[in-house]
């Protein structure tokens, strides 16, 4: 027994899911189905790909064409799918570890190529599945099982990283801001090129416990309080900027898309003159 939208887009027989109480993965996954529904995409034309991680289990619950691949390599599989059949709507679901640690190279090159894949990152700032090791997005001084005295690394900004690498759409929102999240997912899927939506997410079980962030509700409240639109941030007085994180759209431009360019080469070669 659940909502119509969940009945339509989820594999009900696999529910309830295994995510921990309060984990935001379910909120973000449901928001993705809202976006797909509002766009009116053909369910059989959508492919959702993932690597490995708690977040990467999402496609197993979703009733589209789905592929659960190897850690960090989701974008390599997604690239193959998109090149084999460019008409498909290809969406990658990835964790922060999956897409920015082991899969960091795939990320920057998929972005550089501007291939029409939408990447959604469930950024909980930790390796959830394997027990709370720090990831490339764990804040400096935050704790993880591999940083019991506090992380000395500086974190990646995934949305800005993707934008700098060549993504034509890149934005960040949070698991609390569901309406904005649905809008960003729709804009990202509609963009003909590489799109990134980074969703600031929560892992109450590992990140929360290690960092004394309180309950899942308190962590959701923190997303609500601490994230601010980048335009609104500029207008804040200096003393109020402390501790704020930026959300918003970092890039939204149009450039030639990879599979279309590839098709142009094929057409030119099959078109005669060049085909000796």
């Amino acid at each position: 027994m659940t909502s119509e939208i969940v009945q339509k887009y989820f594999r009900i027989e696999n529910l309830p899911h295994i995510w921990c109480p309060g984990c935001s993965n379910g909120v973000v996954t449901r928001a993705l189905t809202m976006a797909i529904d509002e766009l009116g995409l053909d369910q059989d034309n959508v492919v959702v790909v993932s690597g490995i991680g708690c977040s990467s289990r999402a496609p197993g619950y979703l009733d589209f064409n789905t592929l659960h691949t190897t850690h960090g390599r989701g974008l390599a599989f997604a690239t193959g799918i998109k090149l084999a059949n460019p008409k498909l709507d290809v969406i990658l679901i990835a964790g922060d570890g999956d897409v920015s640690a082991i899969g960091g190279n795939h990320l920057i090159h998929a972005a550089r190529r501007n291939i029409d894949i939408t990447t959604i990152v469930f950024n909980n700032n930790i390796y959830g599945m394997t027990g709370g090791q720090y990831s490339p997005t764990t804040p400096t001084a935050a704790k993880g099982t591999t940083a019991p005295h506090g992380n000395i690394d500086k974190p990646f900004d995934i949305a800005q990283l993707a934008a700098a690498a060549g993504a034509t759409y890149s934005s960040r929102t949070t698991a609390y801001h569901v309406n904005q999240m649905v809008k960003y997912f729709k804009d990202a899927i509609s963009n003909k090129g590489f799109s990134m939506v980074e969703v600031a997410s929560i892992c109450p079980t590992y990140y929360g416990r290690k960092n004394k962030s309180g309950s899942g509700v308190q962590m959701m409240q923190a997303l609500k309080n601490d994230f601010i639109d980048k335009m609104a941030y500029e207008k804040l007085p200096e003393e109020k900027k402390e501790g704020k994180h930026l959300m918003g759209v970092f890039k939204n431009i149009t450039l030639p898309e990879y599979t279309a360019e590839y098709q142009r080469v094929i057409d030119a070669l099959q078109g005669g003159e060049n085909n000796e």
């Binding site: 909502s3 969940v6 529910l15």
Partner: peptide
């Protein structure tokens, strides 16, 4: 409540739905 439920356990539905 429906938007923020991670478990799809609360939603707005028809009174007549089972």
């Amino acid at each position: 409540c429906e938007k923020l439920c991670p478990d799809f356990a609360i939603w707005i539905g028809g009174k007549e739905d089972e």
